[in-house]
């Protein structure tokens, strides 16, 4: 009786697997292991990869752990994908050192590894498709400075203090302010885990503590959207500069609540991984890094086709 039920579960799983479909044998198979899959940003990377895969007639899969803290789960994913003996692998390391033994294994089996989003501290990846986050956050600092008259107090809300992007965006912003905008003071840097609600609470607390605050930089989608909520709830007028896109941010920029944001090119990152992997498989030489670029967008250019193409909702 109970066994039949369990069998039912297995059949159910089988149906799902059938659903997932299978690839023809002669197609190249390239699994991409990202840092996550739920955020719109990763979905955009996935979309870019899928489009490129269709164009080049290769099969891809796209996976990432539930949170960017789950370093060991990501290693398990890499290990499972290697067991499938893929033709190449795309990998966005959460902690590059932790992944080195498995990447070495890939190298031994002559499976080309393409890094994306953040680099791996090793020469195993043939190339890295990523945004120059330091430069992009520096640009955010310049824009914020210009909008507040190059003096006054600002604060930063970052998604986390351990990931490469968190560190680079924070440091890129802080360094540019220090180097180029000596009259601006960064009064606080807080971390909200990229969570809207937490980031909103943080923004409100900062605003309460610093009544003269002129602007806030939110270092990723969740942080920026959280900051917007916080500013709205605190009933203040502040210059908010965000990062990445998403429906809320795009709407806020159009309505003027948010001054502008830096966008990476997630679709370009995804496409770059697949294209680079295929090039590697064809024996072509690859550059050490591919800068997939970034744009600053605000009310004036949010509908510009060049920008609109890389924004995700």
């Amino acid at each position: 009786m109970l066994n039949r039920r369990h069998l039912g579960a297995a059949v159910c799983a089988a149906a799902l697997i059938g659903f997932a479909g299978s690839a023809s044998a002669d197609q190249w198979y390239i699994p991409l292991i990202s840092k996550g899959f739920q955020h719109q940003f990763w979905q955009a990377v996935k979309l870019g990869a899928e489009q490129e895969a269709k164009k080049l007639d290769v099969k891809i899969t796209f996976e990432g752990p539930e949170t960017e803290a789950m370093v060991d789960k990501q290693i398990d994913m890499l290990s499972a994908d290697l067991a499938k003996h893929p033709n190449a692998i795309g990998f966005a390391a959460l902690d590059s050192k932790a992944a080195i033994p498995l990447l070495k294994k890939a190298q031994d089996e002559k499976i080309p590894v393409i890094a994306f989003d953040s680099g791996v501290d090793s020469d195993i990846p043939l190339t890295t498709c990523a945004t120059d986050n330091l430069a992009a956050a520096g640009e955010a600092a310049d824009k914020l400075a210009a909008l507040i008259g190059d003096s006054g107090e600002v604060a930063v809300v970052v998604h986390d203090q351990t990931s490469r992007t968190g560190i680079d965006r924070r440091d890129g912003f802080v360094k540019r302010i220090k180097d180029k905008h000596p009259n601006i003071k960064i009064v606080d840097i807080q971390y909200g885990g990229g969570d809207h609600l937490k980031s909103a609470e943080i923004a409100k607390a900062i605003i309460a503590a610093h009544p003269d605050l002129k602007g806030i930089f939110g270092a990723n989608e969740g942080s920026a959207e959280g900051v917007l909520i916080g500013v709205k709830e605190a009933k203040k007028k502040l210059v908010v500069i965000g990062y990445d896109s998403g429906q809320d941010q795009i709407d806020a920029i159009k309505s003027g609540e948010e001054a502008g944001a830096i966008t990476q090119n997630p679709i370009g990152i995804g496409a770059c991984v697949v294209a680079s992997a295929v090039k590697a498989l064809k024996g072509e030489k690859l550059p050490k890094t591919v800068d997939t670029g970034f744009y600053y967008y605000d009310k004036t250019n949010v509908d510009d086709p060049k920008v609109a193409a890389v924004l995700y909702k």
């Binding site: 039920r5 579960a9 159910c12 799902l16 697997i17 899959f37 796209f62 990432g64 398990d76 994913m77």
Partner: peptide, 29 residues
Amino acid sequence: LTNGLRILSVAQEWQIVVTGLIIILAVYA
């Protein structure tokens, strides 16, 4: 379960659904 679904390249969203079903089934049993 996690590894097997991954090896079969089942979409990740569905992997989570299946894991949830298995937990419910086990507790119901």
